[in-house]
Simulated scan of single mutants.
Amino acid sequence: MRYEQMEVWQRSKQLSAAVYRELKELRDFGFKDQITRSALSIPSNIAEGFERYSEREKFRFASIAKGSCGEFATQTLIGIEVGYIPEPVGQHWRSEAMVISRMLGSLLKALAARPRN
């Protein structure tokens, strides 16, 4: 299966695009850079892993993507707290990040069950 066909990649790509759109006017460039990077890291690492040849590398990059979900969810909470992200938007992003994280957890379990090469 191509990564573009995977729901987890599609949802994480949509989330990343939403973050970029919502924060395009934010002037705190340090925060904006960090949160957009963590959001972008999720679909990017899924894609990179699935373009690799070995199951070990697929697992590694899916694991990195899962870690980026946690990073993004934390940054979203901070963004809400400091007033950069409207609470309803941020709560939606966190909810979506948690769904994506669970999907990645399931993907990691499936990859761990396969023979590694």
Rank of each mutant, 00 (worst) to 15 (best):
S12G: 06
I46S: 05
N45P: 03
F61G: 04
K32A: 03
V19P: 04
F29L: 01
E51N: 12
R102G: 11
A47E: 14
I42R: 00
Q91W: 10
E25H: 12
S41G: 15
E51S: 15
V19Y: 04
R27Q: 09
A39S: 14
E51G: 15
R52H: 03
R94Q: 15
P43W: 00
A62K: 08
E7W: 07
R52W: 00
G105P: 08
E96R: 03
R60A: 13
R94W: 03
G67D: 11
F29R: 01
V8M: 06
Q34I: 04
E48K: 04
K66I: 11
L108A: 09
Y3M: 05
G79F: 12
T36N: 04
V99I: 14
E51D: 13
A73R: 09
A62R: 06
R11K: 15
E25Q: 13
M98S: 13
V8C: 07
F50M: 10
V8L: 06
E71A: 04
Q5T: 05
K58L: 07
A39G: 13
M98Y: 14
V89C: 09
F72H: 09
E57S: 11
E96W: 00
G79R: 09
A73M: 07
R21L: 13
V8Y: 00
Q91C: 08
E4P: 10
S16C: 13
A97K: 08
S63K: 13
D28W: 08
T76N: 01
H92Y: 05
T74H: 11
I64W: 03
R21K: 15
W93G: 02
I80R: 02
A113Y: 12
L108N: 07
R114D: 11
D33A: 02
E87D: 12
R60K: 14
N117P: 04
I35N: 00
R56Q: 11
R27K: 14
E96L: 11
A110V: 11
V19T: 08
G49R: 06
T76F: 04
G79C: 10
L15M: 06
L77Y: 07
G49A: 05
R56C: 02
R11S: 06
I78F: 02
L15F: 12
E48H: 05
Q75E: 00
S95I: 08
V99C: 03
Y53G: 14
L111V: 09
K13D: 15
K32T: 12
F31D: 03
V99Q: 15
G83P: 03
K66T: 05
G70Q: 11
K109A: 15
C69V: 01
A113H: 14
G49V: 04
E51K: 13
T76Q: 07
L77T: 06
